[in-house]
Write a protein that binds this DNA or RNA. Structure first.
Lengths: 349, 349
DNA sequence: TTGTAGGCGTTATCAA
DNA sequence: TTGATAACGCCTACAA
């Protein structure tokens, strides 16, 4: 370690007090142009860089945010994190982050401790709501934490939450298929332990019911988000209900697996059977055929969560004791592509 | 902010000195069981948590690592980061991270400054080598930084580097196609500004030359890693060289786009034309048909880089002035699937 | 406009 | 086995 250059070193070289150097560095107070010059030169010469740890220690602000997420190798988390990072950078925050090995893990205290010990100004909990993985949330616990924004969960009293309207997304997807003349629409859902899955499932059922269409158990299978599970789910669907003329897969990976089965069994897409996915991963536009899908605008979710967190931090800084709370639900957007457009053969016949 | 509980608070409650509490917290020195008990109870009662900032300030160690990466929404960076995070967590480090908006950005000093200001113990530079985006690296600059490990670059004097042998991966891919009886093998390369692309290109050429096969410009196109570019590249290839019996796409996304074109133009895969990709993204196993591809084991890369960084940190802590350096090149692995196996029609005829 | 004293929460040194 | 005292590098309050 090359010996740290400190405020005092600069002060000595410039023949001023440490406080004066501090003033120059932080642009505060009135300083004569002459000394400012001298100090600046000393700073340059010594290559002085302020020590944020010391600064944070006294100012009680670390200008650091923490993100907890899981499954970074998947589309959703990585996109959300990208949005978070960009906004944080813009606002002058440095990011710390931690991955939950299992997103249904409920033993999160060590992670939280590690962040609070490092005096982060705020925390973004970017782990999807799965099973009872929200059970650790208790008011007494939250009270000892910096402000927290929760992502992708059912809004809850006393929490700041940013979520996507998954139900609306599923309705858009299903209604689009209905608009295309499809009547027998299957569903490959995500794992039902996930809140997002249940919401999408509810949206599908709602849209089907509204159109007076059947949504029987035989036309519904549960996947686990992987392409592999989409493949197996589709195989099961084709056995149980060879008459389906459309399938809504609850993410693009499962749609990909399902598309493969359609090809393998000699079905034409979209003539014989149409497909819609969810997420709008970049590859979806190049599936065979290009996939209609629902974009969640996840990087907006990340971005927004940082803005909200920033507000909460400022509020607490101002010593406001009331823990105000903010909830935002973003609307997803349907992207229409070939996998679902075109007139189904059955209707023409 | 609920008033911080400090060592002194605990000390007062337990009627001991601050240093004694410190000793209990850190398990150092001999302490009578009686006082240890008393201190422990006081800690529990007050809910005391050590302040890492203060600790780092005096101990000159933050137990924090920084990662700089780019394009987190892509497979490579996110997988590498996952490996980094897991190993860091195991070793007791907290991670800070920053994204380069443009991976060929060369103005990296502000980011580096922000990390050194926060006294990170080490830095992992996980941005691929592109164009001259390594030009900022200078010994004088590095001297003022904590230890740095560089990922995915051509090994360079005086730097610790962890890379994958891209050339060998491309050779494996190409030779596999040759082994399958293919003779006219096209290439959809990555952007030539990327070191990794050039290495894969070199591997392809080397394998072709060794087998006495032609690698003419007409059978080589450059993509930009996206599925879209794979599609366009394949269209161009099919125009220029409709006789190709195989294509090596330098990542799986481009392979996906290329597969689509093959289907669209009525070619049977792999009978008429075989495909190999690169990366082994999870979806590759569910492409239509399942894609043969090269796995880089990127999470191992991340993991290894942390271990090396840890060694460098320890070494410097021990006051070793010699900046030792370590270089590791990992071997990728070919995964064979249907897109490239089976006897080509031409050979049977 | 500039400087001094004191403290942020922890650990190291040296005594007791 | 325990405890003063002095750092670590910076900032706030007050004074000059």
């Amino acid at each position: 370690m090359t010996m740290q250059v400190t405020l005092l070193d600069v002060a000595r070289l410039a023949s001023v007090s440490a406080k004066t150097v501090s003033r120059v560095v932080n642009n505060q107070g009135e300083i004569s142009e002459a000394t400012r010059q001298r100090v600046q030169e000393a700073i340059e010469q010594l290559g002085y860089r302020p020590n944020m740890l010391a600064r944070s220690l006294v100012s009680q602000r670390s200008h650091t945010l923490a993100v907890v997420t899981s499954g970074l190798e998947y589309f959703g988390p990585s996109h959300t994190l990208t949005g978070i990072e960009q906004k944080s950078y813009d606002l002058g925050y440095t990011l710390m982050f931690s991955l939950l090995a299992h997103s249904d893990d409920t033993n999160v205290l060590p992670i939280l401790d590690s962040f609070t010990a490092r005096q982060v100004d705020g925390i973004i909990w970017a782990v999807s709501e799965i099973g009872d993985n929200r059970s650790w949330i208790r008011p007494e616990l939250l009270k000892n934490l910096p402000p927290v924004v929760f992502l992708t969960m059912k809004p809850m009293d006393g929490l700041s939450v940013v979520s996507v309207n998954n139900r609306s997304g599923a309705i858009q997807a299903t209604e689009h298929l209905i608009d295309q003349g499809r009547r027998k629409i299957g569903l490959i859902s995500g794992p039902m332990a996930w809140w997002e899955s249940r919401e999408r499932f509810a949206g599908y059922k709602e849209a089907m019911a509204k159109a007076g269409l059947e949504a029987a158990p035989s036309q519904i299978v549960e996947g686990d988000w992987t392409a592999q599970s989409g493949k197996h789910g589709m195989q099961r669907l084709m056995q149980q209900r060879p008459d389906l003329d459309a399938v809504f897969a609850c993410n693009d990976q499962m749609a990909l697996g399902a598309l493969g089965v359609a090809h393998q069994t000699g079905r034409k897409v979209p003539q014989d059977i149409a497909f819609v996915g969810f997420d709008n991963i970049p590859e979806a536009a190049c599936f065979w055929p290009p996939l209609t899908t629902v974009d969640q605008h996840l990087s907006d979710v990340g971005c927004l969560s940082v803005q909200i967190l920033q507000k909460l931090i400022e509020a607490r800084q101002q010593g406001q004791e009331d823990r105000s709370t903010e909830v935002k639900i973003l609307e997803p957007e349907l992207f229409t592509r070939e996998s679902s457009t075109g007139i189904p053969a059955g209707v023409n016949a």
